[in-house]
Amino acid sequence: MKKNPVIPFAIIAVIGVLLVIVISAVGIGQRNDIADEGNDEATEEESQDGETSDDPEEIFESNCASCHGADLSGGAGPDLTKVGSDHSEEEIHDIAVNGTGSMPPGMATDEEAEVLAKWLSEKK
């Protein structure tokens, strides 16, 4: 009796498709859990403090470093290593709150922008 060579391949294909579906469902659940966890942490931080950080480097790291680089050297956003020689503290505050060019508004609260502006205006 001759075996049909297609049947083992069909079984493997069906098992593979089912495995992909199961792994995708697990991944979607994990993605949602991770997103929810991030929201919970932000809420916990806000409720514990109730106020903004007064550490300009911490504010910069959480709000600005992704575009301007952790060392202020730039990236998607411009280099800020000597921003104080180009802009006054008030101008920096205005840019942090209202945005400019490709930088969107609202990247920092008024209080955070005040702390950042003072710190960045000293970079000359």
Rank of each mutant, 00 (worst) to 15 (best):
L18V: 06
L72E: 03
T43R: 08
P105L: 04
I23D: 11
G77S: 11
S102I: 12
E122C: 07
K124S: 14
I34D: 09
G50H: 14
I7S: 05
K124Q: 10
V6K: 15
I28N: 11
A13C: 06
A13E: 10
G16C: 13
S73P: 14
L80F: 04
D86V: 12
D55F: 03
I59R: 00
G69W: 03
N4D: 14
A117P: 06
V20C: 15
L72M: 07
E122V: 12
L116R: 00
N98S: 14
L116K: 01
A76K: 11
F60H: 03
D33K: 15
M103H: 03
A113N: 03
G38F: 07
C67R: 06
E111S: 04
I28K: 09
D71Y: 06
A35K: 11
L18G: 15
L18Q: 11
P104D: 13
A10G: 11
T52N: 14
A10R: 15
S66R: 09
S47F: 13
D40T: 15
I95M: 05
L18Y: 15
P78K: 08
V115N: 01
G75A: 00
C64Q: 04
G101F: 07
T109H: 08
V6A: 14
A25E: 12
A35L: 08
E114K: 08
A108K: 01
I15Q: 15
V115L: 01
G106Q: 02
F60D: 06
I59A: 01
S121N: 05
K2V: 07
D55L: 00
D36W: 13
A13H: 15
A108Q: 05
E114L: 04
E112R: 00
V22F: 04
A13G: 14
E61G: 12
I7D: 05
H93G: 12
P5L: 01
I92S: 01
T100M: 10
A96V: 06
V22S: 07
S62D: 03
H68P: 02
I34Y: 08
A76I: 10
K123F: 12
P78S: 08
N63A: 07
T43G: 14
C64V: 04
S73Y: 11
H87R: 09
I15F: 06
E61T: 02
S102H: 09
G99V: 10
E91P: 04
K123V: 06
L120I: 03
G38P: 13
